[in-house]
Amino acid sequence: MAATSVALTPTSSAAVAALPAWSSTSLTLPPLGHLDAYISAVNRIPMLSAEEERECARRWQREHDLEAAGKLVLSHLRLVVAISRQYLGYGLPQADLIQEGNVGLMKAVKRFDPEQGVRLVSYAVHWIKAEIHEFILRNWRMVKIATTKAQRKLFFNLRALKRGLKADASDEDAVRERLSEAEIEAVARELNVRREDVIEMETRMAGSDVVLDPLPSDDGEEVHAPIAYLADQRTEPTAVLEARERERLSSEGIEHALAQLDERSRRIVTARWLQVNDDGTGGATLHELAAEFGVSAERIRQIEAAALKKLRKALEAYA
């Protein structure tokens, strides 16, 4: 068995790491692009008889015999390849599906009890599919589409049923095409779930990933993406500092600038811009201030303009 040189996974050593005790077995990892060669190689590995399988399982269980465990894994790699073909419609590379399935196979071998009277092939199917299911749910969408056990089961069952109902459409189109009310009721009865659960899962499956960051446009113009209006600018550091600076200038700064004016100019600016009448309207008019100081409205306007100019310079110096 030590002379057998077959890859445990078609991609990386991640699957080997799932069971560190097997790392000493003689398993080589071919280049990523040789998936056909990998499948051809595992199909040439002979299957174990029932007696050989039990003997290897006992040696692994009782003595932690690495060569026995390796035989169990290698003889069932073709099973992983066969199961992975059932999940090619999800748009994920078969090599990745096989790798995850191999992780499940090793977990099955680690826990397999030969005294239960069940063949490893029957026991391993659950572990292989579980790992592939988890991989699909992690990678089919950027946002995980199913989290609970019930949602995961509904996801795979609903997808299979929709492909059957939409036989004239491609796999992806069948998933995105909405079910009619009658079809929803039929699916709910078939899967023994609430129609509300079917509608919710169908909505999740029909959705697509949205790019949050803006993508560059061909004409060089800025493209507005969801990140532009989803981000809360109130807590952005620059915005916080600007708000604090405005608050400081509106209180201490204005008070400091007003102190630089003479009494009449200060009174005119305060009455015109910083006071509010009892009815909520703006400050005093030019004519009201002209009557108060005994000059023309034009003269009040000139004083106001000069005072505002001084205020701006004083605020700039204060800032």
Rank of each mutant, 00 (worst) to 15 (best):
residue 5 S to K: 13
residue 6 V to H: 09
residue 14 A to F: 10
residue 15 A to P: 01
residue 17 A to M: 09
residue 17 A to L: 10
residue 18 A to V: 11
residue 27 L to G: 06
residue 29 L to T: 10
residue 29 L to K: 14
residue 33 G to H: 08
residue 34 H to A: 10
residue 35 L to Q: 04
residue 35 L to F: 06
residue 41 A to S: 15
residue 45 I to L: 10
residue 51 E to M: 14
residue 52 E to Q: 15
residue 55 E to G: 09
residue 58 R to W: 08
residue 61 Q to A: 14
residue 63 E to S: 11
residue 64 H to W: 09
residue 66 L to P: 03
residue 67 E to T: 10
residue 69 A to E: 01
residue 69 A to R: 01
residue 69 A to L: 02
residue 75 S to F: 04
residue 76 H to E: 12
residue 77 L to Q: 15
residue 79 L to S: 14
residue 79 L to E: 13
residue 80 V to L: 05
residue 83 I to R: 12
residue 83 I to F: 05
residue 84 S to D: 00
residue 95 A to W: 00
residue 96 D to Q: 09
residue 101 G to M: 06
residue 102 N to G: 14
residue 105 L to A: 02
residue 108 A to D: 11
residue 110 K to M: 11
residue 119 R to S: 07
residue 119 R to D: 07
residue 120 L to S: 07
residue 122 S to P: 00
residue 130 A to K: 13
residue 136 I to G: 10
residue 145 I to A: 13
residue 145 I to L: 15
residue 147 T to S: 12
residue 147 T to G: 04
residue 153 K to M: 11
residue 155 F to W: 12
residue 159 R to E: 13
residue 164 G to N: 13
residue 166 K to A: 10
residue 166 K to R: 15
residue 170 S to H: 02
residue 170 S to G: 14
residue 172 E to T: 11
residue 174 A to P: 05
residue 174 A to T: 06
residue 175 V to T: 13
residue 176 R to W: 01
residue 176 R to V: 08
residue 179 L to C: 11
residue 183 E to P: 03
residue 184 I to Q: 14
residue 188 A to I: 05
residue 188 A to L: 05
residue 192 N to M: 08
residue 192 N to Y: 03
residue 192 N to S: 11
residue 194 R to K: 14
residue 195 R to T: 15
residue 199 I to L: 14
residue 202 E to Y: 12
residue 206 A to G: 15
residue 208 S to L: 11
residue 209 D to C: 04
residue 213 D to L: 14
residue 213 D to M: 12
residue 216 P to Q: 08
residue 216 P to I: 07
residue 219 D to M: 07
residue 219 D to N: 15
residue 219 D to W: 06
residue 220 G to C: 02
residue 222 E to I: 09
residue 226 P to F: 01
residue 227 I to K: 05
residue 232 D to N: 14
residue 236 E to M: 09
residue 237 P to R: 02
residue 238 T to H: 02
residue 240 V to Q: 08
residue 253 G to P: 06
residue 258 L to K: 04
residue 262 D to V: 08
residue 263 E to T: 13
residue 266 R to I: 02
residue 267 R to T: 11
residue 269 V to S: 05
residue 269 V to G: 05
residue 271 A to I: 03
residue 271 A to F: 07
residue 272 R to L: 12
residue 275 Q to T: 15
residue 275 Q to W: 11
residue 276 V to E: 13
residue 276 V to R: 15
residue 277 N to H: 14
residue 278 D to E: 15
residue 281 T to E: 12
residue 287 H to S: 13
residue 288 E to I: 04
residue 289 L to S: 04
residue 292 E to G: 00
residue 294 G to F: 01
residue 301 R to G: 07
residue 307 A to T: 02
residue 307 A to M: 06
residue 309 K to M: 04
residue 310 K to P: 00
residue 311 L to V: 12
residue 313 K to H: 10
residue 315 L to G: 00
residue 315 L to W: 00
residue 318 Y to K: 03
